[in-house]
Nucleic acid binder design. Sequence first.
DNA 1: ATCGACCTTCCCATCATGGTAAGGTCAAGC
DNA 2: GCTTGACCTTACCATGATGGGAAGGTCGAT
Lengths: 146, 146
Amino acid sequence: MNIGEAAKASGVTAKMIRYYESTGLLRPAARRGNGYRDYGAVDVHELRFIRRARGLGFEMVEIAELLSLWRDRNRASRDVHRVASGHIEALQTRIAEMQGMVDTLSNLVTCCHGDDRPDCPILADLGGGVGAGQPLEPANKRRQHA
Amino acid sequence: MNIGEAAKASGVTAKMIRYYESTGLLRPAARRGNGYRDYGAVDVHELRFIRRARGLGFEMVEIAELLSLWRDRNRASRDVHRVASGHIEALQTRIAEMQGMVDTLSNLVTCCHGDDRPDCPILADLGGGVGAGQPLEPANKRRQHA
DNA sequence: ATCGACCTTCCCATCATGGTAAGGTCAAGC
DNA sequence: GCTTGACCTTACCATGATGGGAAGGTCGAT
């Protein structure tokens, strides 16, 4: 199977297949006489594995570990469990961070009029505490002669 | 104020201050006779603005927009509102994606024994539907002579 | 004068992915 | 046999935000 066919069969682009090989995530593919890479069902299966793992947000290093466990008949499921749990924790940490951003922003957005006027609690917050905006100007000549 | 002092005062590394300048997010800093960048209170204020915005997950392009609105006395808070709302939505989309990953993984992790044995629903899932793992072998000689 | 701390610019690396260019190969149709 | 288009190969560049480092200039204190 050509790399293009393997790509179609696995949902991984040819580009990424070569990349995975170059980084050692995948073992070098077999080559045919013309230098073309040659893939079989096992390879496609591994590619789908990678694709699915990427879809679950695993990083390449983690996928390398998972893939190696997958290949290893002697694996302990404990190791898989550990990798997956660690990833869940990382995801939850990141989610919590982002949720915090959402909470803060939601408050600010709720308080913002969102109209023609320049006053805006969002900018005030970003400007370093309520009251900022242009606090460094003497606050004369309001609105730049318009 | 030197770049180092501005960095300390703003919480933005000197490295990033230069980077922000190079990308046009910040206007070129004033220079002293020796070529050193020279910062004032206004600059530090903008740097803090950027830092806070980064902390809320805004991308550089969005920050550029926010910063320009911040500087603009004639801004309409509507524009700030729009940028912030868009960002909230992006965050929520990403959070939902990641939460989906967490949900899937949590299910799998719960089902995984996490012991010495090789059987593992996590790998089975990654391997493309339940039942995978090494389905491409005749399934004889289980557990490789151990 | 010297030393350490600072500044400057420039280059490289990250991570996963896409794009592109230059060139080889193959299969189909003429 | 030759052309054409689709495919393959490698190699390089770009992304976004950040860190690291080198090579060299400057400053302030001893």
